[in-house]
Computed example of a mutant assay.
Amino acid sequence: MSTQSKFRKLAAISAFAVGAATLASSVSADTWRYAHEEYEGDVQDVFAMKFKEYVEDNSDHSVQVYRFGELGESSDIMEQTLAGILQFVNQSPGFTGSLIPEAQIFFIPYLLPTDMDTVVEFFRESEAINEMFPKLYAEHGLKLLQMYPEGEMVVTADEPITSPADFEGKKIRVMTNPLLSATYNAFGATPTPLPWGEVYGALQTNMINGQENPIFWIESGGLYEVSPNLTFTGHGWFTTAMMANLDFYQGLSEEDQKLVQDGADYAFEKILVHIDGLAEEALEKIKKASDEVTVTRLTEEQIDKFQARAPQVKEKFIEMTGESGKELLSQFEEDLKEVQADK
């Protein structure tokens, strides 16, 4: 299916969301509903299908997976999860940050390194990830089952970006996330929040000049067709999280709670294998599909100019989140130091 066809399809399937939500309440309790933010075959979809595989292979339960657009945008599927219509949701902190401000920590530029081994070890071992975040999510009615990385963030724009000066006057699409807006303000751009369904058209009509996403999503969504200049800025990884409605999870038997957690752990291990080499594969597909694409990898000197602007975003994060954010950031940085010391 072409990229434009995907977006045209959204108009038809959005009408399905209301009907599906009504139908959901009548489905038997052993059919669990799980929605995510990506297309068939993308990282979140692979994770969801591996979770489904584990649950269905190890119990009598079944899992119904809904992909991007089938039940609305990211905000819609979170609302449905909190309302108990959905049992599980996969959503990035880019959107969850409006509900849980501390989740925006992943959008502090140059906080996370970009080499995969360090990133994976951090997600496995981090006290901030595995102990502090679950408590924060529980306060908002969510059981955090797994956080995992999807890929290094890459900027696409109407021309190559090599310095903050190149961002001046450019409208860069961001998720509806205040700290991500602060990042692009710091970088010199004009951050423009847009839901995902509007991004391709906005790039095509020059309503915006660029956006950021992991490279597999740039390929899957066809963003390189309308925003062909790719820049690897080294400023972070795209992170996402699988969650359950907390009341639903707490109402499960101990056996089913273990099934759910084991299924999430199984999917986590499978997704780490899946994303290894995925960025390189996606970039090759993009290069083969278009001769208009340019690829810019910033030098250390060029990165330094962007990195010098990161502290103001860190200060903004603390301002937004208060003492809890300050404690989380401190633990986050300590965890990173421990992981990097072991390398």
Rank of each mutant, 00 (worst) to 15 (best):
L71C: 03
A244Q: 05
K135A: 10
T294R: 03
E281Y: 08
T31P: 05
V226A: 05
E53D: 12
R8L: 11
V119D: 01
K9M: 13
P214D: 12
A83H: 01
K143H: 01
G221M: 06
G322M: 04
L203W: 06
D45F: 03
L23R: 07
D76T: 01
E334I: 03
K270T: 15
S26A: 15
M1V: 13
Q257P: 08
E73S: 12
A157Y: 08
E198N: 13
S5I: 06
N90C: 08
D276E: 09
F16D: 14
L142T: 00
G263K: 04
V293M: 10
E254K: 12
M1H: 03
A11K: 09
S163H: 14
I303W: 00
Y39T: 15
T114M: 02
M78P: 07
Y148C: 04
L298D: 12
P113W: 00
G263R: 09
T3C: 10
S163G: 13
F16P: 06
I105S: 02
G151I: 07
V89G: 13
S26P: 14
A308Q: 12
Q64C: 14
S25G: 06
F187I: 13
E70W: 05
W196C: 07
V273T: 10
M1I: 13
G72V: 00
K316S: 14
M320P: 02
A202W: 02
Q340R: 14
G197A: 13
I161E: 15
I318A: 09
E338Q: 10
E53P: 06
L246D: 04
K52S: 08
S75Q: 06
A138G: 00
T239G: 02
H274Y: 14
F7P: 13
A308I: 14
E152S: 09
E159R: 14
I13V: 09
L203S: 08
V119C: 00
N206T: 07
H235W: 15
A267K: 01
H235V: 11
G41Q: 00
S163M: 09
E334C: 03
L194T: 07
M147Q: 10
F133M: 05
Q91C: 08
E38V: 14
M147D: 07
V199C: 11
H36K: 03
L328V: 02
I105T: 02
D342R: 12
E127N: 06
D30S: 11
K288Y: 09
S74D: 08
E269H: 00
E79G: 11
V293H: 05
T205Y: 06
Y39H: 08
G169I: 06
V154F: 08
W32R: 00
E121W: 05
S75I: 01
